[in-house]
Design a binder for these strands. Structure first.
Lengths: 257, 257
DNA sequence: TCAAAAGTGTTATAAATACACCCATGC
DNA sequence: GCATGGGTGTATTTATAACACTTTTGA
């Protein structure tokens, strides 16, 4: 059986005293592995209870600052896009079942009491570049892994629903928020870019039209080289022209008048 | 000086015991007066502190249910569209200044303590038909009035910002949520409908194109009569075809591929 | 030389947009 | 009859969308 880190546990117990009770923050950290979207899962306890990462808000901390602090604790970076996508608060939202996983680990009662209450959670999504690692941000997390968004129905609590709602907002932000900057590696091919769009949209798109649209927008800069290691015609490598990309973003909706 | 309702105050004091502390709900109730969008303002105390209405969440109540209950308390109807638009939680969010307005009214300490703490608020917007009245939902509200959205910068706390954010979401919901059902009276003219769109969008739209677009969608049913009381050519009255209107709504975004 | 994926071009249709013009009414 | 706002038509441009054709590569 894994051993709880006593120091980290004492720090957690102490931190909890300063947090606003019954409110949590949850992060949906999207990344693109080249084929599909993934989000981090953290193992709460040692009984197969996987959740998405989260944390709490200090009494003297702005909401957005808390979200960014938790993001930094979780992946070590705080310079990423961070956007609220919703607030969730059914009465059944509590960590009761997850806390049960610690019956053999002698958690302090103060921690058990804290987690046994009903929580209202505020969801933020962010986008992480493919190389970022998930850090182990809490003594209660026994493991971490990336979970494909299609497989999030195995997550505990209402976290499958959180991921789903975040994905909806991610989709609707595709034309107005600079998602590509964080999603893409430094260089990429148009077929790879298309796969990213297809992963976000959850549908296939026309190859020819996609390419034309992307090239016409002037947001891609062709690199002289092509991607090797393919047994077919090697695709051309591009890099994102951030200035033009940011200029191309718009909140406008086309209404026809 | 206005007198506080002792019974209502006792009930409030009692209710507060059952609510989740430090979390509130705020409602932005939009209505269209024929010229501009308005939201209700409630006078907290007697010292010119106007806010938008709100309330709290009972420990045994789902978040969405609480929002709907507060809506019903405020305008007597619960069958309206109700959509969360954001969660706001700067550390400066508290009713300290508003509670000061009651120093001459001998509020119980328990109430003062409750309102003196920092609050995180969850914003919901809704749309009310023009004839609905604002009810006096709290003993702490000394008056109510409709405030034009352009004049909400006079509201206390961060409520001007809340209205602003709600308006942004309202705009982006124009093609996907059934806003017209609640905004419009039973019969209306196309120029009136155009004014509603202009009020929501915050810009003028082309008369001819607007009319064509609306008629092509098949969502308007022409009534035999025209609107009198005009000194010009009388416009034709229409009614909303709800079935076709609901069918015309879509979440799709046009991406060009 | 062939299969497969990359890259390019063509075309039909629909949507967005800018205006011009006519109509009905009260003064 | 004329000013004013209501109602209608048309033409240009652009976007969407379907799909056919060509190119490059390794095996």
């Amino acid at each position: 059986m894994a051993q709880l880190n006593e120091d980290a546990l004492r720090k957690l117990d102490n931190d909890l005293q300063g947090y606003i009770p019954q409110i949590s923050i949850n992060l949906v950290i999207f990344r693109f592995n080249g084929e599909a979207l993934e989000v981090p899962g953290v193992l709460v306890g040692d009984k197969n209870s996987w959740t998405i990462p989260g944390g709490f808000i200090d009494q003297s901390e702005n909401l957005e600052d808390a979200a960014r602090r938790i993001l930094k604790e979780q992946i070590g970076s705080e310079k990423l896009l961070l956007k609220q996508f919703g607030c969730f608060g059914n009465t059944s939202r509590n960590f009761g079942a997850e806390i049960e996983n610690f019956t053999n680990h002698q958690l302090p009662n103060s921690i058990i009491d804290w987690f046994s209450r009903r929580f209202i959670t505020i969801g933020y999504y962010t986008v992480a570049p493919p190389e970022l690692k998930i850090l182990n941000a809490s003594p209660l997390f026994f493991s971490t892994k990336w979970v494909c968004v299609k497989d999030t129905n195995t997550l505990a609590l209402d976290h499958a629903n959180l991921v789903n709602e975040a994905l909806k907002i991610l989709r609707s932000d595709l034309l107005s928020k600079p998602l590509l900057i964080d999603f893409l590696p430094d260089s990429f091919t148009i077929p790879e870019l298309q796969k990213l769009y297809e992963a976000i949209l959850g549908r296939t798109v026309d190859r020819g039209n996609f390419r034309q649209r992307m090239l016409k927008q002037n947001i891609l800069t062709k690199l002289g080289v092509t991607k090797k290691k393919t047994s077919r015609r090697p695709p051309i490598l591009y890099t994102l022209n951030k200035q033009e990309y940011l200029k191309s973003l718009t909140e406008d909706i086309k209404l026809g008048f």
